Simulated assay, not measured.
Amino acid sequence: MVADDLIKSILIKNQSDNLPEDCLVKSNFLSLYENFQSIDYMKDRAILSTKNEYVDMLNDRIIKQLPGEGKKFYSFDEAVDDRNHHYQQEFLSVATKWTTTPQADIFAITTNVKPSINYITRHNKPDTRREITLMNISGMLMCATLFGDLATNEGSILEEEIKYKPIIALSDFKISIYQGTSISSQIISTLCINPKIELASELREWFQLEEAAKAKGSPSMLFKNAKEIHISDIMHTSQNSIQAQYCTFKAKITTILNRLEPWFYACKGCDKKVDTDVSKECLNDKYHRIINDPLPMYLVKILMENGTDNTRVTLFDAAETLIRCKAEKFITEKKYKNNHSPYFQKFVLNIEKTFKFLVKLDEKTKDERGEGLNSSSADILVAELLFTPI
């Protein structure tokens, strides 16, 4: 009986033809028209909701009841004359409404999601992180690190949906362009998956066109727009900008240094090389996670020349275009058919062929790139490289 009385006392009944949401607003904000300018009146009332989208909907219904001309504010970076601290500074720029005007630092396609990694922070507290790879509408790849709940919750959703290449909107992430673009989440960061906005639709359409072109062997937009330079320009020219830049160059493959075993096994969480014959633990993980199924990845080392210049290039994921199959399939074929594997034979036939490469230049100076090498020989170690046969 007591329970029934308690339920009746907190239950809000809809006694009119109005929508239930309007009855909820009216019961909590009595005399709203007369008191909407009172800070004490507004801050002492709240309607709790299970989802942000419901909060946005209720806010809209309340705002529509307020008198006066409506104004649109995209964000607040500072509270003016807030002597009583009614507005929490760290939440002023947080955006949660993704169905109308987007307020995000980055809109991108998710191309890869790594497993989450548990680790100990410098304050000796357990935490979780996860690396994801993004591609923006210019075709540039970026790596973002999710921490805490974002790594566990949203990161798990992205991992499950990665085959559909979900679009994400990042807001209030920490972005650094020093020595390459670095993106990482903060306490106030928000991540929205597949926001229902026009910009997301445009990004999806662009990505589908890029994938279709890639399937036909056509170069990407990033490849087409990159400036063509000479090998010597890469080795002997410093970057004026602190941002990474892309460029292309032509060169002939003279030798594949590790053609008999162009792969390694990596930890799925950090992509670092592991040797399960020596240790079953990932040494890069502070929790020393057990590795039961290391990930096979390409690592192809080739010598190239262009006129009087020569260089050594290391290919990682880009080697898949050269070998024309996944690393796991190449290893299996090589194991059972040895040098008679059709993939291996196509692979070595690339020697003495000329290619056009897309390479990402970071902020290293010319001395750092060519350290220990003479003017006619240089060493370019790059993980992101695309190419088109000439």
Rank of each mutant, 00 (worst) to 15 (best):
Y287E: 14
H86P: 00
K163I: 13
N59L: 15
S93Y: 02
N350R: 10
C247H: 04
E328P: 00
L19F: 08
N84Q: 10
K301A: 07
K114S: 14
Y33F: 11
I229Y: 10
K273Y: 03
G139S: 07
I47S: 04
F355H: 08
L260Q: 10
M297H: 02
F107E: 00
K13H: 12
K326G: 11
P389M: 14
I63Q: 07
M1P: 01
A251R: 02
E78F: 15
I63L: 12
Y298W: 13
L19R: 10
S49R: 11
G180P: 03
K356Y: 00
I291C: 04
S156F: 13
K43P: 00
T128P: 01
K301Q: 14
A108K: 01
M235K: 01
L150E: 04
D127A: 14
D44H: 09
P296C: 10
T276L: 12
Q179K: 15
L373Q: 07
L191A: 10
K71M: 11
I256R: 04
G139D: 09
A95P: 00
G180I: 10
K64W: 00
K353M: 06
I234W: 15
Q243N: 09
D367K: 06
K196M: 11
T100D: 15
I10K: 07
V94A: 05
S27E: 12
D275F: 11
R312Q: 14
P115E: 12
R45P: 05
G370E: 01
I7K: 09
E53W: 09
L134M: 10
L385S: 14
I351D: 00
L141T: 12
G148F: 03
M221G: 02
W206L: 03
I47Y: 04
M142G: 02
I193L: 06
A212M: 08
A251M: 03
L373H: 11
I290M: 03
R45V: 05
R61W: 02
T145P: 06
L24D: 00
F316M: 09
K356W: 00
A226N: 07
Q239A: 13
S341D: 07
L30F: 08
